[in-house]
Design a protein around this nucleic acid. Structure first.
Lengths: 210, 210
DNA sequence: TTGACAAACGGACAATTGTCCACTAAACTG
DNA sequence: CAGTTTAGTGGACAATTGTCCGTTTGTCAA
């Protein structure tokens, strides 16, 4: 429970801290560009951190200073997509205020599923390093908060039974969207994304009390 | 869909194949013993394959011939426990024939959860190597088959809606028992096993159509 | 400007993984 | 009980990861 990056009073105290060094920022950008290039050419699995080091012509320490491992690097590469996804969802939300919370929840899960599929190679790589998926990283927080929020709303409106443990249930639902699992279902089991999406939707629908 | 180890007519043709070499069998056993010892002392995370190689005084190639990676080794180490778990469950089954399938399903998930917790270090290590969890390995097959079977029974008895996609739903439920997730919930989020178990149970209960 | 300070850099390094392949020795065979 | 076969063995090796730390270089304050 560190307090290092959390200012309850909203006084995020940036003053007194040095500005980000220009060379550091440039390096970060450069590394990301090189990585994106290599990943696009050979796929993230086939590219090692060393490959990126060589291709980007920076020191080994430099890369690891910016990205503790390949998962973090991949995450940084979908950062923009991720932001768009969140934006998309919020826009979507505003247009489906007439839907019940559980229907919205099903919609959210489907959007998230499609996002995962669309960015599968990078998502996969970033989620392999478990910490980045189960941990307190931003994208994960957004998903969990959204699912919980919708379930709470559902309870409030009597669409869900109050005895449900929402925190546990939210984790359980999101676990079904764990990229390696989705990948396995598609690749090995031959499920289509549509089928998985429909399957999750009907599950969510059945959760409602009737 | 290879047919290599599957004899539809039951003529599992072992004749014509050489017997297992005695030294190989001995080595396998020895490696497992040494690994168990080291794991017990320092925990599986802290022990490397190289450590085991040195401590067991066999060649590097030998260990990798028997166990392609640490996950496989860990899985081999809980093999017996796993067999007991399956046996336990089947015995349990016979004594709760009066329970509805969905209640049995909740019971199964709880037993599985407890198993995971009881063997957390090894389970964790063996599931990290995703292949061993999502793949077609025996333990996984048993779990999936059980969950599917119970859900199918539930549909037959009208306890579950027929429109549910059982294959997808089974995967989703089992995903909630993914060891790294459980570990995260306990360690970081501070959930108790009891809470997780209850949470999953109430979720399963809510799935029933009323 | 200049100097000091800390953040960032680079690259050597240790640790680890998994593979490869020439050799060894069980286990069948006649 | 030789001779042959082939699974199994050992250990060198290449690939990769992540760390550490002496050196460099932006930034800020004077």
């Amino acid at each position: 429970m560190s307090n290092d990056d959390f200012f309850p009073l909203g006084l995020s105290d940036d003053s007194g801290e040095r500005a980000i060094r220009s060379d550091a920022a440039a390096n970060r950008t450069h590394i990301l560009a090189v990585a994106a290039e290599l990943f696009a050419q050979h796929g993230p699995e086939a590219v090692s951190m060393s490959d990126i080091v060589e291709a980007s012509d920076v020191g080994r320490g430099t890369i690891y200073r910016h990205f503790p491992n390949k998962g973090a690097l991949c995450l940084a590469l979908i950062d923009e997509e991720l932001r768009l996804f969140q934006e998309d969802w919020l826009a979507n939300m505003r247009e489906q205020t007439d839907e019940t919370p559980m229907v919205q929840l099903a919609n959210f899960l489907e959007m998230l599923l499609r996002f995962t599929q669309r960015n599968m190679p990078l998502t996969l790589e970033s989620q392999r390093q478990g910490i980045y998926y189960f941990g307190k990283l931003e994208p994960r927080q957004f998903d969990v908060a959204t699912v919980r929020g919708l379930m709470q709303a559902a309870v409030r409106q009597g669409e869900l039974a109050a005895e449900l443990d929402i925190d546990v249930a939210a984790d359980a639902l999101l676990a079904a969207l764990y990229a390696p699992l989705i990948q396995y279902q598609i690749e090995t089991r031959g499920f289509s994304i549509e089928r998985i999406g429909e399957g999750l939707r009907s599950m969510v629908m059945q959760l409602r009390r009737t």
